[in-house]
Nucleic acid binder design. Structure first.
Lengths: 334, 334
DNA sequence: ACAAAAAATGCAATCGATTGTAAATAACGC
DNA sequence: GCGTTATTTACAATCGATTGCATTTTTTGT
């Protein structure tokens, strides 16, 4: 019952060669059922697990997918951000279900070839990147020579990298339209449009307002994405603004939560005095007081789609970007 | 400028052997400064990155730490649970800072040797497990033969596996004492004591109540850990209980958030009618309305400590369990 | 019972790096 | 200039599995 660590040991024990053991353990048809049984039993008995590194080296696949979170324009942003975390959870579920491991790295894009560190190191079969941050050009460049890569984020015409994300313009439109339907005339947008996704949401928001003839009633506050940083932004805004907005469209649920808190601190009732709509549809929106109305992105579907596309790209197929439908979830804050 | 993929190619190009290239790239003193310069420049120029799998196979280390989340007693629990996620983020920060990758897997312990799947597969140098769930025996058993393993969770006398966690008994005591100090006479504990950590928090809670002569004023509700499942538990409890508790000690912040929402739905003011204390001190507690009082665990320190212990164990040193001090963070809910 | 076809196993190269040791080259003293 | 010691570099084994091909064993047909 000594510890069997390698195929050689097991082979010697059974009086065969490593080739035979390898075939027996992988249910090769080239092996007789009898010896297969015998070797599998022996392996089980001694708790033998083949070394995956060696296998991967030989087969040239690692069984791991890299997940990268580039933190370009928001240094303070943490992996523990609810959005990342939610997406990460879904990805982990999806990947482990298909037999892949998930290699997680947080990257601060400092030197320019931060992506090349990963790609071609042989550790991963493919790459999923959560959020474009402000690195769209780098992503485009790498996408040209590294195929198995999928990015969560906004899709723009002429973009070279494969993305999955919701229709941010439509989503922004829906959010603003909902506020208008609820009677809001003055609307504030909270979010920094230097990120592509947020810029698109703002664009949709403007479109809806223009349609309703309220184009000049919009205020844009480039709030931070990180909750701790967003709160002072918002509190400052609420304290200084002359005409209070009747509706707030926050570019993410995290920003919306900060807004809810700031509003409560100013003694403003939600949705009585101010109505609030977020974006993402995170589960955490169920737990706020009041529960948060939001544009939902169906991140589970997004994760599934990203993994699908990625595996097809790994297999050598062509697979283009996918734009998902956003959905308005009306809860209590509007 | 063709793509150089292996050392052999680079060696041929430079007219040396792979051994020389290997030494040059690893700054070996056995190499002349001149050729080292030359080879390093050549490698840079052609964007050559050594294959990590091959290196790892040879050096017998992988540079990756496995992080496992066993979901024993709560199948519905998701990796996207705020606590996991927060811990995961800190671990990712800490590990990447020390040059390790983080290999994430969610495991549902079905067959008994779920842990052996991981250990000895050669993919990881060490293992961090977040939460004992109801798998303490398995962990003890594996710890006996697999050294580089650290577990987040409760520490009990006679435990074989190395743990990092807060002093749950003390933390529970502090939470209950705080509620008592705030004038609460009837106290409810929300949490399922079949998990070790929660059982210990309850024990501390009872200790404080006994000290104040309130031992018979405690109600225990074995609420689920998952927010979606906890809410009906709690709403049902609040609807059916004859004497409303004045203070609620929730065994986790996630449960506390569900409690806040349920209380709001019943029209109960927090902290006016009912005071609430959570456990974990998650950032998300800053965003609730009202902001949540909680027993903080300093998860960042916990992550640092786990990684420290793990690396020492990998190096062959002995390293025992660490118990961290819990801290009361008073916010607005009590 | 024997040749031919089929099945099972052994042999050895391979994946891409690392590293101990041997060989070749350079540096040095006298 | 030659022997001797230092430096450099080349050679080849190694990590642990996979797999094409050669070889042996078994099965089948007659």
């Amino acid at each position: 019952m000594s510890q069997i660590k390698t195929m050689k040991e097991l082979a010697d024990l059974a009086g065969v060669t490593t080739g035979t053991v390898s075939r027996a353990l992988s249910d090769s048809p080239l092996i007789s059922p009898k010896t297969r049984e015998r070797l599998q039993a022996l392996a089980r008995e001694h708790g033998f697990k083949p070394n995956l590194l060696a296998r991967n080296l030989r087969t040239q696949r690692t069984g791991a997918i890299g997940v990268l979170i580039p933190l370009g324009h928001e240094k303070g942003q943490h992996i523990s951000d609810p959005f990342f975390i939610t997406m990460l959870g879904y990805l982990a579920d999806e990947l482990t279900e298909r037999g892949y491991d998930l290699l997680l790295s947080r990257v601060i894009p400092e030197d320019e070839n931060w992506l090349d560190q990963y790609v071609g190191s042989g550790k991963i079969d493919g790459l999923i990147i959560i959020g474009q941050s402000n690195q769209s050009e780098t992503l485009d460049e790498v996408a040209a020579r590294y195929r198995p890569m999928v990015v969560w984020g906004g899709h723009a015409p002429g973009q070279a990298h494969c993305t999955v994300g919701s229709d941010n313009i439509l989503g922004g439109d829906m959010a603003a339209q909902h506020l208008i339907d609820r009677g809001c005339q003055r609307i504030a947008f909270f979010g920094d449009p230097q990120a592509l996704e947020i810029a698109q949401r703002l664009e949709g928001c403007k479109r809806a307002l223009a349609r309703a003839g309220l184009a000049d009633k919009l205020t844009v506050l480039p709030a931070h994405l990180v909750a701790e940083a967003a709160h002072p932004d918002i509190a400052g805004f609420l304290g200084s603004v002359s005409e209070r907005p009747q509706g707030i469209f926050a570019a993410s649920d995290v920003i919306a939560m900060s807004a809810l808190r700031a509003l409560a601190e100013y003694g403003l009732a939600v949705p009585g005095d101010v109505k609030v709509v977020g974006y993402d549809g995170l589960a955490i929106g169920e737990q706020t007081v009041p529960r948060l109305t939001s544009i939902s992105q169906d991140l589970r579907l997004g994760a599934t789609t990203m993994v699908d596309l990625l595996l097809r790209r790994i297999a050598g197929e062509e697979a283009g970007s996918v734009v998902l439908d956003p959905k308005l979830i009306v809860r209590m804050s509007s």
